[in-house]
Design a protein around this nucleic acid. Structure first.
Lengths: 123, 123
DNA sequence: CAGAATCCGTTTAGATACTG
DNA sequence: CAGTATCTAAACGGATTCTG
């Protein structure tokens, strides 16, 4: 962490949506996880992401498309059919994501315990 | 990503501030990076994080303390002296963080290029 | 089906000023 | 020094409605 990475995390020029660890809004990691096994349609993504509104899902997908992590393909017609899939770049993010997921899976109880203890002391 | 991790990323019970990859607000990874080499005082943290306001820094530090990633120690007196340092739990997050940083360091140009191309097409 | 548009209440971010 | 308080502007989140 000492040597400055390009983009330097501490540099103002590092746009926040490219900043390490924060990949945009809260649905982004979930969307990427959903696309791991192949292309999915808009409505297929809404199933596992039960609490997502179409607005929020659109926003996440647009951001991922804009940054080259997801490719959107639509065959026009009625009804419309649109598919989303990971690009190679998007796929390359699966590994670091899994590392973080593994860490979270190992340590989330500790964090919840710490939180409870902290909140107890406040009253 | 197929096997559900505890906490299940897709489960509503997974609190968003514990969710993989999103560790709270945007300063959190930077704060952790700043604490890698040892304890730091409040004002010492403000130097590398040039754009952070005291309010935002306090909020990040409180969240990290609450979840057991950072320990806060203050010796009362005048002037007050407060130090922040990573706990073992916080320290355990350095490795996954570096994996993500390394990925970002390798791929940020691609993302910026993709963004420019995407934005060009819109006009 | 795949979204866009709109409204709206809630957070959040930032700047500034102040205090024990 | 290490924050807190206050205010404002912008961003976000959810629900609802509409359309090609």
């Amino acid at each position: 962490m000492r040597e400055p990475l390009p983009p330097d995390m501490f540099d103002e020029l590092c746009p926040s949506d490219l900043a390490p660890i924060r990949f945009g809004d809260k649905w982004v990691p979930l969307v990427i996880a959903c696309l791991e096994d192949g292309p999915r349609r808009f409505s297929e993504l809404r199933v596992p992401l039960r609490r997502v509104t179409p607005k929020a899902l659109t926003k996440s997908l647009r951001g991922l498309e804009r940054h080259g992590l997801v490719r959107r393909t639509s065959q026009p017609g009625t009804p419309p059919r649109v598919e989303y899939e990971l690009t190679p770049l998007g796929r390359s993010m699966l590994e670091p994501m899994k590392v973080v997921c593994a860490w979270a899976g190992e340590h989330w109880e500790e964090m919840l315990d710490a939180r409870e203890a902290y909140d107890q002391k406040l009253r």
